[in-house]
Design a protein around this nucleic acid. Structure first.
Lengths: 227, 227
DNA sequence: CCCTGGCTGTCGGCCAGGCGACAGCCGCTG
DNA sequence: CAGCGGCTGTCGCCTGGCCGACAGCCAGGG
């Protein structure tokens, strides 16, 4: 399967609805972005649905004080940007590229037309929206937890998407400076550093060559879940 | 218009799709709840879509330490509970009554059947889900703001739903102990008390007879928005 | 091979907000 | 009208996490 076909298959939760998939794929166009280039800004009207073919897209909020909050990190196979398509409201977040990146863009008009022709697509995207809502709820629930726990949880979440199992444990194949973890957890780089080293001291994670290794996923999960 | 007709009209954002509305209304049944009675628990499979006819429903998360987080407060005219219907996953939160309460419940099976017959309903509910997602995003963005700001913002949000304009200002016609504000903002009662009195000192709000009065909505908004 | 720029490790001061404690206050009920 | 239970007002202590500062460290480029 070509990487583009793989990307399309990742748009669907289980079985791809053939007609709809074809309609969307026909109208998609490729867009290339350089490192740091803006895909869209918060407040823009929706250009379309986005699928990442190569590279990485950051989905962020910029506080009035300049502080950046990192809501999403989308790698190859990920789709996003549907919210503004459904409610016709401005983009809720900025999106820009990390490294050389290629995305597929299904223009809004084509997206709407395809869905009108294949209404069962609405049901699918309703499920997608639900999943995002549940994730948001979970993060909100964890607000009161100490930073160490929230960090461990986030690492497990990242590993679920970007983890590569090896003999030593689960590698995060992702450029992930501590600064970014801080931006995800609304914390400071220093605090992340401290917690990360606490996890290292407990033998749960390790850092080798700038990448993170989850050495004991079971124990991490236990620490995060039922104490 | 009867209060029940009013409730149904509130299910839709703009114009009610007649056929779908009728189908849902036909299958809805009334359920009466006493003060504190559980409507559903987190983890339950979805019973159906809920509309509040009379009283108040609290939508909460219970932390393992017993701490309660208040995610939603639904009064007459409010609908909720659609998430689990669309993704067939367990309820993400508990829901229970405050005071004598009556709700309409559209059973899951009937809900699905009605939507299959009227697929344009999916589009509507997708919009509803989007709105909830945006609210969640905003709360997440405000994580780093000082408590005073978050409180002011929340009061304005509450006023948008439960506010009653008078000569003195905007009354919150809602039983709202400081403890509940604390549970909404993941703070303590004491901190809320302090911030509330700061707002009172600035003449922005007032408490009379246990209810809250927003005396200067304009200034509150200014304080919250562009400084 | 050195220099430069981005990341990591670490320290100390500081403060918002948590937590326990307790005293009014007010409305409801017996 | 006395008493009780739920809410509000207020203190003081304590701590997690913020912030500024600075010193390694390492990789890539000239």
């Amino acid at each position: 399967m070509s990487d583009e076909a793989l990307l399309w298959s990742r748009l669907w939760l289980d079985d791809a609805p053939q007609g709809l998939n074809a309609a969307l794929a026909d109208s998609a166009r490729l867009r290339r972005l350089h490192d740091g280039e803006l895909l869209y800004a918060k407040g823009d009207i929706a250009s379309g649905l986005i699928g990442v073919k190569r590279g990485l897209i950051r989905n962020v909020h910029l506080g009035s004080d300049g502080r950046e909050l990192l809501f999403g990190l989308f790698g190859p196979g990920s789709w996003f940007g549907e919210i503004s398509l459904f409610d016709d409201a401005p983009r809720p977040l900025h999106a820009y590229a990390m490294g050389e990146t290629e995305v597929l863009l299904v223009p809004s008009a084509a997206f709407h037309a395809a869905l009108e022709a294949h209404p069962q697509g609405y049901r699918h995207f309703a499920r997608v929206l639900c999943r995002k809502l549940r994730v948001a709820f979970e993060v909100l629930e964890d607000q009161t937890q100490p930073l160490g726990l929230r960090l461990a949880k986030r690492l497990l979440d990242l590993a679920a998407v970007y983890g590569e199992p090896t003999a030593e444990g689960l590698w995060l194949k992702l450029p992930l400076p501590q600064e970014d973890l801080a931006r995800m957890l609304a914390a400071t780089r220093q605090s992340i550093n401290k917690e990360l080293r606490a996890l290292t001291a407990d033998g749960l994670v390790a850092v080798k060559g700038g990448r993170l290794l989850l050495r004991d996923v079971e124990n991490l999960k236990r620490r995060v879940g039922a104490p």
